[in-house]
Amino acid sequence: MLIEFFRYIAAGTATTLAVTLVALPLGLVIGLTFALAHVYGGKVLTQVMRLYSTLMRGMPPILLLFILYFIISGSINLSPFWAGSIALGVVSSAYQLEILRGAILSVGGEQMMAARAIGMSRLKAIRYIILPQALRMAIPPWSNEASIVLKDSSLVYALGVAEILRRAQQLSATTQQPFMAFGTAALIYFILVFTANRLLDYVSQRTRIPANPLG
């Protein structure tokens, strides 16, 4: 019985992973761009980014997901999977903005100064000096955000995307065994999140700067 449950719900894993693998990188691209704009962009841009960050993080993700979903799917003809994943990516971008911004700031303005002193433009300094250090620093909090996006991917069930949670709901409705159904789903999520965290820990280890004074 448990095997049947597991097999049916686990079949949604591919969808869950697909949603995550669209949303997370999208959030990274947007988040990184906006973080750089925030830190290096000058007064106006900084204010705009601050507004974006405050707005996007100021409401429950599922609410923002619905709003974005209806905006996106209202204007372009995308499937619920793409509209939902993109919306999730935009939601995540605000949190990633803050993570990356924090990391860039901890690298410090002095590293920028030293880079400019040997004739690097700001752009080169960001690319070769600031980001390599900032991104390494960002891995632990980013790993946390990755887990969150993985778990939040379940929210797209409400948009009609057949991932893990929706399948658990269907099983519960048919068998009236909610604990089995949702428990199995929880187990699968746990395995996914655990694996993702281990993976990112490994990346963090491999890219570690020896004896880094910045920690």
Binding site: Y8, R167, Q170, S172, A173, T174
Partner: peptide, 9 residues
């Protein structure tokens, strides 16, 4: 598909 006997899994 959570409504037996009309649509379910």
């Amino acid at each position: 598909a959570d409504y037996p006997p009309f649509e379910y899994v």
